[in-house]
Design a protein around this nucleic acid. Structure first.
Lengths: 190, 190
DNA sequence: TTTATTTCTTGAAGTACTTCAAGTTTTTTA
DNA sequence: TAAAAAACTTGAAGTACTTCAAGAAATAAA
């Protein structure tokens, strides 16, 4: 049983036993090794990933050839490239496991089938997407109004466990400053 | 008849005549004067707005007391503060008409009713939210990887009509640089 | 039209960051 | 456990912007 996802869904909609049955048999778990890629730039994103355990990140490779993390997903978060997924266009992003991770993968075709069989899931995914969009708006607010140092302390206060788990250079690029500058912030040299 | 919205919905789901009837009678149009606010910081956002004509923007007032635009919505776009809307928490944002505008307002209570009466709308709003989130991800990519000048030219190429309609200082803050710097970019002095 | 208000421009001075390069520490692999 | 790889630190030099202040131009109001 894919309990973690089913419980997450039931926070937003109530499923009948029969629906849980359908859902459960449609899901499959995939174990990802640290650094394993599930999406690469140029590919069409055909899956949605729900993190059961571990951590994924979405990143790009910029013109200087270095990686910039745009998004993290930890337990109970969905990760995908919605634009590539919906419009069938090549993705601009990489999606990678930051740690050894366990994810539930739902392919697009199987997702469409599920949404027909269990229309309540439309509601669940609507709410998830709307909340994610709301979180994204807050992120832009923080990026626009806080200095690098403020963003670091804010993130560190909000997600202290996370800062331990993930390499600093990934967090630095997620907060839109260089790894070197982050090092200076941490040591108080700025 | 609120044709523009109904047509927009029918791009994603097919509505029965009876459903159109229900929908149509639940909607109301509101005319907004230029600069009119529909949401202020600290208020709980209780509505969703669909722009029929004109333009809305979401902005904040930063610590220096100046406005920063985080989001625009033109014809066929939805605008709301999803975080405040879903979690019933005070909004961090202002939402304002940039021009004299016509919007369709749906209050939360009426939205919940509509979603029960026309479950297909769950699908519509799911797709809209997922696509919006996808667009937000691209926005962050552009903010992270392009210089101010590149962001300006990129935006200008993508939305040339828009740059005419909206004061430059709003676009400057949306692209995360100062109005003065935008002026210098435009005159080639940089 | 006249006046008031809003928006845009310009240059000079300042700053919050980046980049580079080299060394150190930590983690992973064999 | 040694060796290799990945991640972090440090300082020096550079730069892409911001801020300020003042004036000009465009738009709206009277």
């Amino acid at each position: 049983m894919h309990l973690i996802l089913i419980e997450h869904i039931q926070k937003f909609v109530t499923l009948e036993p029969a629906e849980i049955e359908i859902l459960d048999s449609a899901l499959r778990v995939s174990k990802l090794k640290k650094k394993e890629l599930v999406l690469q730039e140029g590919q069409i994103c055909n899956d949605m990933y729900f993190v059961v355990k571990g951590c994924l990140r979405q990143y790009i490779i910029n013109t200087k050839g270095s990686e910039q993390t745009l998004q993290f997903a930890i337990e109970n978060w969905w990760m995908t490239d919605y634009l590539s997924y919906h419009n069938l266009i090549p993705s601009h992003f990489y999606i990678q496991a930051v740690e050894n991770s366990e994810v539930i993968v739902i392919e697009k075709s199987s997702m469409e089938l599920l949404l027909l069989q269990i229309p309540k899931l439309e509601r669940y995914f609507r709410i998830v997407a709307q909340k994610s969009f709301g979180a994204g708006q807050m992120r832009i607010k923080f990026l626009f109004t806080m200095s690098a140092e403020e963003r670091y302390h804010h993130f560190n206060t909000l997600h202290p466990e996370f800062v331990q788990r993930v390499p600093q250079y990934m967090i630095a690029s997620y907060l839109d400053f260089s790894a070197e500058f982050m090092s200076k912030i941490r040591s108080g040299k700025v």
